[in-house]
Design a binder for these strands. Structure first.
Length: 276
DNA sequence: CACTCTCCCTGAAAGC
DNA sequence: TGCTTTCAGGGAGAGT
């Protein structure tokens, strides 16, 4: 489930492989994913060089020498594979980039919730993909003051506010649960009841869980690339996510079990004793 | 406008 | 054992 940390490590891995390389050919193996592949993708990509790889929210941005940027979203099940010349296609490989050094970048996505598109770099921020996206949680833009001002008029539960990409970008279900646990805040608490003190704790927790996950990705994968070429996925030990019925890991509560509830159709895991 | 619900899709896991 | 059902989730768009 690629959220910000997985996308970030994928970008760092891609940067190592892609920067300075020339794209010789691209292949689309179906008409599209969540949205159709742009018809004239080859026209924009063939013969260009990769200048840099960046991330915005959960989007991978591959910046090309001709002023365009290839946008990849991994959706829910998407993954990027670095393949050699002799790479054999697998089920659910949908999009391939061939490089001049005969390496290949493969997008594999069983559930096809991902997307691939291309934008003019100057128009990227104002495009429909990015114009409503909130602050990057790891940038200095995300402050307790900013979070407070965004939550002040919201009646929705804080967990749902964290999932709203217009408020903060890049947080998904797992890290929303983990950040709330670290901050000791109930996922059910109304957004407009978050005090400055709680917002401050929450901002710290968000930055902490995301930073730790990126660090885990970098250290558990050699140079951000698995031996099989896969990027961005790594085992993280979560404190609440997926731990329904298991004891809370805090020191001061005994025999308190992690609970699972459904909020807007999504599972939320939390400790009813630690989180208020 | 604010918010919730449904849908897209496949594969793993649970249920029968 | 083997079939069927359920569940997972990001984001768009429909519905309340």
């Amino acid at each position: 489930m690629p959220e910000l940390p997985e996308v970030e490590t994928t970008c760092r891995g891609l940067a190592k492989v892609l920067i300075g390389k020339k794209i010789t050919e691209i292949k689309t193996l179906r008409s599209g994913l969540r949205i159709p592949f742009p018809e004239d993708l080859s026209k924009y990509m063939n013969g260009t060089k990769v200048i840099s790889v960046s991330r915005r929210a959960k989007y991978i941005c591959i910046n090309l020498s001709n002023g365009y940027v290839l946008i990849i979203h991994l959706g829910m099940s998407g993954r990027i594979i670095i393949g050699k010349k002799e790479y054999v296609l697998n089920l659910h490989d949908h999009f391939i980039i061939n490089l001049s050094n005969s390496q290949k970048i493969i997008l594999n996505d069983p559930r096809r919730f991902g997307l691939v598109t291309i934008l003019n770099t100057d128009e990227m921020e104002s495009s429909k993909f990015f114009r409503n996206i909130g602050q990057e949680p790891l940038s200095d833009d995300l402050t307790p003051e900013l979070l407070c001002s965004k939550l002040k008029h919201k009646k929705i539960a804080i967990k749902l506010a964290l999932l709203d990409q217009k408020i903060i970008s890049g947080i998904g279900n797992i890290y929303a649960c983990e950040a709330l646990f670290r901050a000791g805040i109930s996922p059910k608490r109304k957004s407009n009841s978050i005090s400055y003190k709680r917002a401050s704790k929450l901002v710290n927790s968000i930055k902490l869980v995301l930073t730790e996950a990126i660090k885990a990705g970098g250290s558990s994968i050699k140079d951000f690339v698995h031996p099989d070429g896969e990027l961005g996925y790594f085992a993280t030990k979560w404190r609440v996510y997926g731990r329904e019925g298991e004891p809370c890991l805090c020191n001061h509560q005994k025999n308190v079990l992690i609970k699972r509830i459904i909020q807007s159709g999504r599972s939320t895991f939390f400790c009813p004793a630690c989180q208020r």
